[in-house]
Simulated assay, not measured.
Amino acid sequence: MSIAKNAHVGSSFKVTKAGGKLRALTRKLIQAAFVAWASFTLAFAILYWLPGDPVSIMLGPDAHLNPAELAKLRAQYGFDRPILIQYFDALWRAVQLDFGKSLVTGKSVTESIVTAAPVTAGLAAISLIIAILFGVLFAVMSLDLPGFPRTGFVVSKIPAVLVAIPTFVVGLLLLQIFAFTLRWAPATGSNTWSTMVLPAITLAIPGAGILGQVLAKSLSRAYGEPFVRTLRARGYSEFRILRHAMRQAALPAFTMAGLIIGGTIASAVVTETVFSRQGIGRLMQMGVTNKDINLVCGLIVFSALVYVIINLLVDLLYPILDPRVRS
């Protein structure tokens, strides 16, 4: 009887646990949908209230149209309708992932995003790898490990400096030194691997600073745990102790890496403009400059979805990496 009762309790616990995971996932998906809607609405409102007429900006300063022709063009693009009608029409199309055509290029916004996304994704992946490598290096060297005396104080200040330097300043400095002076890498372009080196380093520098700060604090806490003294008493090498401490300290840095990936698109606006790369950031810059409502709203929704999907994946992977969260 007790065995059957225990089995029943165990199955009930599993059902309850599965139901809790499903509710948590549903809540995350609702939050993701809300973030995408709020981002779209805010972008639409800001672009609508910015000074300037989208049709006039699209035609350029050299166009000479009489008021009747201008009104006809505005009606053709739907800008003569009330703002709420424009908003709900654009929102309904956005739900179907149809953002219309760009006012500047005349191409489908969805197709433009699909074409530009791989360029930015490749840049983001390489920059994240560089940021992780340097972040780990800064964190380890800030520990004042045996054999490296008094390096920690100096190295621990570097991540804060990297975070404080504006991205466009880093990009311009790298261009001046490595592209124009030393000629080690091309200054512009997005077709070859060599054109990705300087932009990737530019994007990686603030990320390396943030990861270095987070990982250094986590490692410092981990080295204060009793297990480090126990491992040293057993004669473990410093490398093996560091490996055990890094495993415990890496979880906060893992979460921060997800946030860095989500924020890469915002940084890519500056980086891809400086290095003339044809990615998501360059599309965003072109859309805002020309008050291209369709293009900007499509890019905002895309950026919001990327951000929430990455953070959702981080939330789902966190219990796998940390058994304490599962329990």
Rank of each mutant, 00 (worst) to 15 (best):
V104C: 05
L137C: 08
D89P: 00
F99V: 02
L103R: 04
T120A: 11
S127L: 06
A117Y: 14
L128H: 01
Q86G: 09
R93T: 06
A131M: 02
I83N: 12
G122P: 05
S127T: 08
L97W: 06
A116Y: 04
S102F: 08
A121D: 07
I113W: 00
I113L: 12
A131K: 02
T110W: 00
L103H: 06
S127F: 06
V95Q: 04
I113N: 01
L133T: 09
I83V: 15
I129S: 05
K107A: 12
A94R: 00
F88Q: 09
D89N: 13
V109G: 11
A90T: 12
A124K: 01
I113Q: 01
F138T: 10
D89W: 08
T120G: 06
T120V: 11
L137T: 12
G122E: 10
L84R: 09
I83Q: 13
E111M: 01
K107C: 03
A94N: 03
I126M: 10
Q96Y: 01
E111Q: 12
I129K: 00
R93P: 01
W92S: 15
T105K: 09
G135T: 07
G106P: 10
V119T: 13
S127W: 04
K107L: 10
A116F: 04
A117F: 15
A121W: 08
A125V: 13
D89H: 14
F99T: 03
E111Y: 00
P118E: 05
F88R: 06
A117K: 05
A117E: 10
K101Q: 11
W92D: 12
G122A: 11
I113D: 02
K107D: 13
I85K: 13
L133C: 07
V104W: 12
I130D: 02
L84S: 14
A124Q: 08
T115D: 13
T110Q: 06
K107H: 14
V95R: 01
A117M: 14
D98K: 02
Y87E: 10
S127E: 01
I126Y: 07
I83K: 09
L133E: 01
R93N: 15
E111F: 00
V119A: 05
K101H: 12
L97I: 12
L91S: 07
L84W: 14
F88M: 10
D89L: 07
S127C: 07
Y87N: 10
I130K: 02
Q86M: 08
G122V: 08
S102N: 10
A125Q: 00
D98A: 02
L91R: 04
A131W: 04
F99N: 09
F134W: 08
I126N: 04
L84T: 14
D89S: 14
I129Y: 01
T105G: 13
Y87V: 10
T115A: 15
W92M: 11
F88E: 09
A90F: 06
G106K: 03
Q86E: 11
V95H: 03
I83F: 14
I113E: 05
A121E: 06
I83L: 15
L123S: 06
A121V: 13
V119L: 08
I113G: 05
A121N: 06
A125R: 00
T120K: 04
P118L: 09
P118D: 04
